[in-house]
Simulated assay, not measured.
Amino acid sequence: MHICHVNLASGFSGGERQTLTLIKQQLAMGYQLTVVANPKSPFADEIRALEQCQLVLCKHYTRSHQRSITADCDVVHVHEGRAIYWALLQRLIHGVPYIVTRRIDNPLKRKWLSQLAYTRASTLVGLSSEIVRQITLRHPQANVATIPSSPVQYPVSNTDVDAIKAQFANKFLVIQAANMYAHKGFDVTIGAAKELEKHSPQVHICLLGDGKARAELEKQAQGLGNISFMGKQSAMGNWFAAADLLVHPSYSEGLGSVILEAMATGLPAVGTKAGGIPDIINHETNGYLIPSGDQGEITYAQISVNPLIPASTICSK
């Protein structure tokens, strides 16, 4: 089978990592692949390094619509974003079918071009039950499938893991890893840190990520000694190995791929009852589920899984 993957994002975040994981798996299975990517994105560099893929550089969805790009392709696959319009145009011009994978749980746009792109897709894929629900609300007649992400596997450097552990020696190390947007719930984590500093000094929280909300979050955390802003990380495997707990208190979330990645390494996780997170976490079986925005619940969850804190100090919820 010959598949054309299209990702026109200029950055490199969850969607790009998931697409790259899928591409590597398909190459291992013997698929023939063409990849259309933004030349400004690190994603294009990652594809170039694979060598087995035919790489087509494309700055905008209105460009690079030669018949030759998909002449031998059975299907085009896109991860939402502007790429859906590239796939739509390629189908209208050359008749190549396409599949859309949606990663976010927001309501679908009512813009005519977006609706046309979804209507003309052969199949729509949602990464969680909540995403599928949102898709079917707008496109009830569409062919929709639920296919969760596969966890990205990161390399681990024992030297770097030891360095992280030494930096936070004798601490119960909690991490939150995400782009710093308002819906990711970093404010909830900071609120929990304020409570934890009073009665659980053994807990230290590292916020891994960057984004437009960072400056405001740093103001909220001013004066706290039990929380550190570590910036965006490329070697997440080291943090998963060094940490004792992952928290992911999003207000909305398509799936929560970082939770899958953490669980794959054996790291326990606390997440909210938002979006697709309940598809991953079975409460008190493989993690903790808490209400969105409830800093009291996330504080309790961190204490209750912390072996450094005597059981007698844990307050009832």
Rank of each mutant, 00 (worst) to 15 (best):
M1P: 15
L8W: 03
A9Q: 12
Q32A: 10
L33K: 04
A37T: 04
A37Y: 00
P39V: 00
P42T: 00
A44S: 10
L55I: 07
L57C: 15
L57M: 12
C58D: 06
R63L: 11
H65D: 06
Q66R: 14
S68I: 08
I69T: 05
V75M: 05
R82F: 15
L88V: 04
I93V: 12
H94P: 06
H94T: 05
H94G: 08
K109E: 15
L116I: 10
A121K: 00
R138P: 06
H139T: 04
N143Y: 07
Y154A: 00
V156D: 02
T159V: 15
F172A: 05
G185D: 09
D187M: 01
T189I: 04
H199Q: 11
A213R: 08
R214D: 06
A215P: 07
E216L: 11
K219F: 05
Q222R: 15
G223H: 07
Q233C: 09
S234R: 15
N238K: 02
F240I: 01
S252I: 14
G254M: 00
G256Q: 06
V258L: 04
V258W: 05
E261Q: 01
A262C: 02
T265S: 09
G266V: 00
T272C: 08
P278D: 08
P278H: 04
D279N: 07
T285A: 15
S292D: 06
L308N: 10
S312K: 12
C315W: 11
